[in-house]
Amino acid sequence: MATQRICFAQVSDVHLMPETGCRCWWMSDSPRHQLEAAVAHLNQVPDLHFVVFTGDLVDQADPQSFELFQEILAQLRVPYYLSLGNHDIDTLGREGRFNREQFIRWCQRQFPLPLAPTGYVDYSLSPLPGIRLIALDASLGQFPLPQGVLRPSQLHWLGEHLQAVPEEWLILLIHQPPFISPTHMDAVLFRKYRLRSEQAAALHTLLADHGRVVAVLSGHLHVPRVYVQDGIPYLTAPPLVGPVSALRVFELDVNPRRGILRYHWVHLPEPGPRPLWHGLVMGVRRDRWGQIPLRAKGARSLPAVAQ
Results as ranks from 00 to 15, higher is better:
residue 3 T to P: 04
residue 4 Q to H: 09
residue 22 C to L: 15
residue 24 C to Q: 13
residue 24 C to G: 10
residue 25 W to T: 15
residue 25 W to Y: 15
residue 32 R to E: 15
residue 36 E to L: 05
residue 38 A to I: 00
residue 39 V to I: 13
residue 40 A to S: 02
residue 40 A to K: 02
residue 41 H to D: 10
residue 42 L to K: 05
residue 44 Q to W: 09
residue 47 D to H: 15
residue 48 L to D: 14
residue 49 H to V: 10
residue 53 F to C: 06
residue 54 T to M: 03
residue 63 P to I: 02
residue 67 E to V: 01
residue 70 Q to E: 06
residue 70 Q to N: 07
residue 71 E to C: 10
residue 75 Q to M: 08
residue 77 R to L: 11
residue 78 V to A: 09
residue 79 P to Q: 08
residue 81 Y to D: 01
residue 81 Y to F: 15
residue 84 L to I: 14
residue 85 G to Q: 05
residue 87 H to Y: 00
residue 88 D to V: 09
residue 91 T to W: 05
residue 92 L to R: 15
residue 93 G to C: 09
residue 95 E to F: 13
residue 99 N to I: 02
residue 101 E to Q: 15
residue 101 E to S: 13
residue 101 E to L: 12
residue 103 F to R: 04
residue 105 R to S: 13
residue 106 W to G: 02
residue 109 R to Q: 14
residue 114 P to K: 02
residue 120 Y to P: 05
residue 122 D to A: 00
residue 126 S to K: 12
residue 128 L to Q: 14
residue 129 P to E: 14
residue 130 G to S: 07
residue 138 A to S: 15
residue 141 G to N: 10
residue 143 F to R: 04
residue 143 F to E: 03
residue 144 P to K: 04
residue 145 L to K: 13
residue 148 G to V: 01
residue 151 R to K: 12
residue 154 Q to G: 06
residue 156 H to T: 13
residue 156 H to I: 09
residue 160 E to D: 12
residue 161 H to V: 07
residue 162 L to Y: 08
residue 166 P to T: 06
residue 168 E to S: 15
residue 169 W to M: 04
residue 177 P to Q: 02
residue 180 I to D: 08
residue 182 P to Q: 04
residue 187 A to G: 10
residue 188 V to E: 09
residue 189 L to F: 10
residue 192 K to I: 08
residue 198 E to S: 13
residue 206 L to Q: 10
residue 206 L to T: 03
residue 207 L to S: 06
residue 213 V to S: 08
residue 213 V to H: 09
residue 218 S to E: 00
residue 219 G to E: 07
residue 220 H to C: 02
residue 223 V to L: 08
residue 226 V to G: 03
residue 227 Y to I: 01
residue 229 Q to V: 14
residue 233 P to W: 06
residue 235 L to T: 01
residue 237 A to Q: 14
residue 238 P to I: 02
residue 244 V to P: 01
residue 245 S to H: 11
residue 251 E to P: 06
residue 254 V to Q: 08
residue 258 R to V: 10
residue 261 L to A: 07
residue 268 L to E: 04
residue 268 L to H: 07
residue 270 E to F: 14
residue 273 P to E: 06
residue 279 G to L: 13
residue 279 G to M: 12
residue 282 M to R: 12
residue 287 D to M: 09
residue 288 R to D: 01
residue 292 I to Q: 00
residue 295 R to S: 04
residue 297 K to C: 06
residue 298 G to M: 05
residue 303 P to S: 12
residue 304 A to I: 04
residue 305 V to S: 08
residue 306 A to S: 11
